[in-house]
Amino acid sequence: MPRLGQGYVWQDLQVGQCFRTFRRTVTETDLVNFIGVTGMLEAIFIEDGYEGAAMAGRPVPGALTYSLIEGLILQTMIQGTGLAMLELQQKIFAPVVVGDTVHAVIEVTAIRPTSRSGRAVVSSRIDVWNQKQQLVMSYLAKRLLAGRDPR
């Protein structure tokens, strides 16, 4: 019986295939919880209106934006099928601040089956956009994904 919410096995993906995630608004609570658990207690993140800030608003660490997007991907695309993150190359193009709403477009760029257990290394490009349709982050990811159960 199919399981609701199950992610894609690598055989269900094709090079060039694209997906768009749901959107997620970054909240003050997200920022406070993230910097608290990671120890990223920089003044620009903990002090509203910090004098030395290079920009207006409450900036959030790029790592928080990345984590929120990975959460959206995990909950939908790779739930139960993602086995490991193998490689990550990331570029940040614009800041994200509390109140911004982000989403991502994922493009499958390569699929390389492994010799073990029907698994494959799936490469993808993930572009992260804000509510103004501005590209804020882009990263390349290589993940180990499960294959279809041969039983």
Score class of each variant (00 low, 15 high):
109 T>A: 10
132 K>W: 09
36 G>A: 06
78 I>K: 02
145 L>R: 01
81 T>H: 04
38 T>K: 10
105 V>N: 11
134 Q>K: 11
23 R>P: 02
118 G>A: 04
79 Q>R: 12
145 L>F: 08
58 R>I: 06
98 V>W: 01
62 G>P: 04
19 F>R: 02
15 V>G: 06
102 V>F: 03
140 L>Y: 10
78 I>H: 06
49 G>W: 07
32 V>W: 06
9 V>E: 08
148 R>C: 10
79 Q>E: 12
92 I>D: 08
50 Y>T: 04
109 T>V: 05
51 E>F: 14
130 N>W: 06
32 V>I: 13
133 Q>S: 14
71 G>K: 04
33 N>A: 11
43 A>L: 11
99 G>D: 04
35 I>Q: 05
7 G>A: 07
9 V>K: 03
75 Q>N: 15
24 R>I: 04
151 R>F: 13
21 T>G: 05
121 V>D: 00
130 N>L: 04
61 P>N: 08
120 A>K: 00
48 D>N: 12
144 L>A: 10
31 L>F: 02
93 F>Q: 10
64 L>E: 08
55 M>A: 10
48 D>I: 11
13 L>F: 00
106 I>V: 15
10 W>S: 03
36 G>M: 06
29 T>V: 09
51 E>G: 10
34 F>R: 06
70 E>L: 13
37 V>I: 14
25 T>I: 00
135 L>Q: 12
139 Y>K: 02
124 S>L: 00
150 P>Y: 07
127 D>V: 06
75 Q>C: 13
70 E>N: 14
45 F>Y: 15
74 L>E: 15
103 H>G: 07
55 M>S: 10
41 L>A: 14
138 S>I: 01
138 S>G: 11
31 L>T: 00
46 I>R: 12
131 Q>I: 01
82 G>F: 09
64 L>H: 10
144 L>Q: 11
106 I>P: 01
140 L>N: 10
69 I>Y: 11
57 G>Q: 09
48 D>F: 07
37 V>S: 10
134 Q>V: 08
134 Q>W: 00
1 M>R: 14
96 V>N: 12
72 L>Y: 09
53 A>I: 00
92 I>E: 11
138 S>Q: 12
111 I>E: 09
81 T>W: 07
80 G>N: 07
24 R>D: 03
132 K>Q: 15
96 V>K: 01
127 D>K: 08
121 V>S: 00
94 A>M: 03
52 G>L: 09
125 R>F: 02
42 E>Y: 13
8 Y>E: 03
145 L>M: 14
86 L>H: 03
102 V>A: 05
83 L>M: 11
2 P>A: 13
78 I>A: 04
131 Q>V: 01
91 K>C: 07
24 R>K: 13
49 G>C: 12
25 T>D: 02
128 V>N: 01
81 T>Q: 08
66 Y>V: 13
10 W>M: 06
135 L>G: 09
81 T>V: 06
118 G>T: 00
81 T>E: 05
35 I>N: 06
102 V>S: 03
84 A>N: 01
97 V>C: 15
78 I>V: 14
15 V>F: 07
123 S>T: 02
141 A>W: 01
142 K>W: 04
8 Y>V: 03
89 Q>H: 15
119 R>C: 07
8 Y>N: 07
47 E>V: 14
141 A>M: 11
18 C>R: 15
78 I>L: 08
134 Q>L: 07
28 E>G: 05
45 F>A: 06
92 I>N: 14
53 A>Y: 04
19 F>V: 01
70 E>M: 14
